[in-house]
């Protein structure tokens, strides 16, 4: 996308540059001009580029969506001003605050909601962002390829404490995840 954009910027710049330096043959037929500038560059060129880009985007977007999968781990993220709480379907009585535990290498569905205003769940290295909206539950599919710590933050302005409204995702190896579910201290 970046390379394509740079190319378009350079082409447009070159066209404008040329319009100053070229000696204008004022007897040029206007009809041919309209064919080149309006039909060609104005209509056909953007339409073809955009169509290709859009199809690519839809395919990629489809892959990012949560699909049914037996391996999926389900967790809940509940936001409020200004902290995050996480609960786990596989360990019902447990609540963690500020840290979300997930297994590495397995898809995780995070059910996101809020107790007060709108927030947004965003772990840049794991997935895009999804909003936490009062009265609604949004499900985000994330997957950490390796065990470790990933920084997360709210990405929807929520008042005074917005800047510090962050959390951490801790991805565990399979063995550690089993210990976490069994309730052993981590």
């Amino acid at each position: 996308m970046l390379a394509g954009s740079t190319l378009i910027v350079i082409i447009v710049a070159a066209l404008i540059w040329r319009s100053f330096s070229s000696t204008p043959p004022t007897d040029k037929p206007l009809g041919r001009n309209i064919r080149i500038w309006i039909y060609g560059l104005g209509l056909v060129f953007p339409m073809s580029v955009l169509a290709a880009l859009l199809i690519y985007a839809l395919v990629v977007g489809e892959r990012l969506l949560p699909h049914l999968d037996d391996e999926v781990v389900r967790v809940n993220a509940i936001a409020e001003q200004w902290r995050w709480q996480f609960t786990y379907t596989d360990r019902p009585e447990y609540v963690s605050e500020g840290v979300l535990h997930i297994p590495a290498g397995r898809p995780v569905d995070v059910a996101i909601t809020t107790r007060d205003v709108i927030h947004s769940f965003w772990v840049p290295r794991l997935a895009g962002k999804l909003d936490a909206i009062p009265g609604h539950v949004n499900v985000l599919r994330i997957e950490a390829s390796a065990p470790g710590l990933y920084h997360g933050q709210s990405a929807e302005f929520s008042g005074k404490g917005y800047t510090g409204h962050t959390f951490i995702v801790q991805a565990h190896s399979a063995a550690d995840w089993a210990r976490f579910l069994a309730g052993e201290p981590m």
């Binding site: 070229s22 500038w37 209509l43 060129f45 955009l50």
Partner: peptide, 23 residues
């Protein structure tokens, strides 16, 4: 993405006008 099309028509009409004339 479709809004880029009428915008492109205008941008190229402007550049075309400059080519056709003597800016």
């Amino acid at each position: 993405t479709l809004v880029a099309v009428p915008t492109a028509v205008q941008v190229f009409a402007w550049i075309g006008t400059m080519w056709h004339g003597r800016p």
